[in-house]
Protein backbone atom coordinates (compact mmCIF):
# COMPACT_ATOMS: atom_id res chain seq x y z
CA UNK A 1 0.00 0.00 0.00
CA UNK A 2 2.88 2.30 0.81
CA UNK A 3 3.89 2.13 -2.82
CA UNK A 4 1.19 4.69 -3.55
CA UNK A 5 3.00 7.01 -1.20
CA UNK A 6 6.06 7.02 -3.40
CA UNK A 7 5.10 8.80 -6.60
CA UNK A 8 7.93 10.22 -8.69
CA UNK A 9 7.99 13.94 -9.41
CA UNK A 10 10.49 15.92 -11.46
CA UNK A 11 11.33 19.36 -10.13
CA UNK A 12 12.11 22.44 -12.21
CA UNK A 13 12.84 25.95 -11.06
CA UNK A 14 13.50 29.44 -12.32
CA UNK A 15 16.43 31.35 -10.93
CA UNK A 16 15.23 34.85 -11.79
CA UNK A 17 12.51 36.55 -13.78
CA UNK A 18 14.38 36.25 -17.09
CA UNK A 19 15.74 32.73 -16.59
CA UNK A 20 14.13 29.68 -18.22
CA UNK A 21 12.88 26.82 -16.07
CA UNK A 22 15.67 24.43 -15.36
CA UNK A 23 15.52 20.83 -14.21
CA UNK A 24 16.75 20.40 -10.65
CA UNK A 25 16.22 16.82 -9.58
CA UNK A 26 13.43 14.41 -8.69
CA UNK A 27 11.68 13.46 -5.50
CA UNK A 28 9.10 11.06 -4.15
CA UNK A 29 5.86 12.41 -2.75
CA UNK A 30 2.32 11.12 -2.36
CA UNK A 31 0.73 13.91 -4.44
CA UNK A 32 1.59 17.08 -6.29
CA UNK A 33 0.81 19.43 -3.40
CA UNK A 34 3.23 17.55 -1.18
CA UNK A 35 5.75 17.41 -4.01
CA UNK A 36 5.65 21.20 -4.22
CA UNK A 37 6.11 21.69 -0.51
CA UNK A 38 9.06 19.27 -0.51
CA UNK A 39 10.67 20.62 -3.66
CA UNK A 40 11.60 24.04 -2.33
CA UNK A 41 13.66 22.88 0.62
CA UNK A 42 15.06 19.73 -0.95
CA UNK A 43 16.62 21.41 -3.95
CA UNK A 44 16.51 25.17 -3.45
CA UNK A 45 17.78 25.73 0.05
CA UNK A 46 20.57 28.04 -1.03
CA UNK A 47 20.18 29.31 -4.57
CA UNK A 48 17.72 32.06 -5.46
CA UNK A 49 14.44 30.91 -6.96
CA UNK A 50 11.37 32.76 -8.25
CA UNK A 51 9.14 29.85 -9.23
CA UNK A 52 8.92 26.06 -9.13
CA UNK A 53 7.29 23.41 -11.32
CA UNK A 54 6.67 19.89 -10.16
CA UNK A 55 5.70 17.38 -12.83
CA UNK A 56 4.64 13.82 -12.31
CA UNK A 57 7.25 11.71 -14.00
CA UNK A 58 4.70 9.45 -15.65
CA UNK A 59 3.35 12.54 -17.44
CA UNK A 60 6.67 13.17 -19.15
CA UNK A 61 7.45 11.60 -22.52
CA UNK A 62 11.04 11.15 -23.53
CA UNK A 63 13.08 9.38 -26.16
CA UNK A 64 14.37 5.92 -25.40
CA UNK A 65 17.96 5.08 -26.13
CA UNK A 66 17.03 3.47 -29.47
CA UNK A 67 14.76 6.31 -30.44
CA UNK A 68 17.44 8.91 -29.96
CA UNK A 69 18.67 8.13 -33.47
CA UNK A 70 15.94 10.49 -34.66
CA UNK A 71 18.12 13.29 -33.35
CA UNK A 72 20.81 12.55 -35.92
CA UNK A 73 21.43 15.36 -38.40
CA UNK A 74 23.91 15.88 -41.22
CA UNK A 75 26.14 18.90 -41.01
CA UNK A 76 24.94 20.21 -44.39
CA UNK A 77 22.50 22.74 -43.04
CA UNK A 78 24.62 25.84 -42.83
CA UNK A 79 21.80 27.67 -44.63
CA UNK A 80 19.95 27.60 -41.32
CA UNK A 81 22.66 29.30 -39.41
CA UNK A 82 24.46 32.62 -39.48
CA UNK A 83 27.72 30.87 -40.22
CA UNK A 84 26.24 29.99 -43.63
CA UNK A 85 26.14 33.71 -44.38
CA UNK A 86 29.60 34.61 -43.15
CA UNK A 87 30.66 35.94 -46.57
CA UNK A 88 28.20 38.84 -46.26
CA UNK A 89 30.43 40.74 -43.89
CA UNK A 90 33.27 40.73 -46.39
CA UNK A 91 30.95 41.89 -49.15
CA UNK A 92 29.71 44.84 -47.14
CA UNK A 93 33.28 45.78 -46.31
CA UNK A 94 34.13 45.80 -49.96
CA UNK A 95 31.15 48.00 -50.80
CA UNK A 96 32.05 50.43 -48.03
CA UNK A 97 35.65 50.64 -49.16
CA UNK A 98 34.54 51.15 -52.72
CA UNK A 99 32.88 54.41 -51.70
CA UNK A 100 36.23 55.79 -50.62
CA UNK A 101 38.26 54.86 -53.67
CA UNK A 102 39.83 57.75 -55.68
CA UNK A 103 37.38 57.29 -58.47
CA UNK A 104 34.35 57.66 -56.28
CA UNK A 105 35.78 60.47 -54.22
CA UNK A 106 36.47 62.49 -57.34
CA UNK A 107 32.91 62.12 -58.55
Amino acid sequence: MNNDFYEEYEVFSKRNQMAPFQHQFSLLAPNKEMAMVMAKENFLRREPCVNIWVVKKSDISSLGEEERVILNRLDNKSYRETKGYGYLKKKWREYEQEQFTEKNLLK
Binding site: M1, N2, N3, D4, F5, E7, P30, N31, M34
Partner: peptide, 15 residues
Protein backbone atom coordinates in the same frame (compact mmCIF):
# COMPACT_ATOMS: atom_id res chain seq x y z
CA UNK B 1 5.41 6.80 11.10
CA UNK B 2 4.07 4.00 8.88
CA UNK B 3 0.53 5.22 9.56
CA UNK B 4 1.41 8.56 7.95
CA UNK B 5 2.57 6.95 4.72
CA UNK B 6 -0.42 4.60 4.73
CA UNK B 7 -2.75 7.53 5.26
CA UNK B 8 -1.46 9.53 2.31
CA UNK B 9 -1.15 6.49 0.08
CA UNK B 10 -4.75 5.57 0.81
CA UNK B 11 -5.78 9.12 0.16
CA UNK B 12 -4.39 8.71 -3.35
CA UNK B 13 -6.38 5.55 -3.86
CA UNK B 14 -9.52 7.28 -2.61
CA UNK B 15 -9.03 10.18 -4.99
Amino acid sequence: TAWVRDALANRNVKE
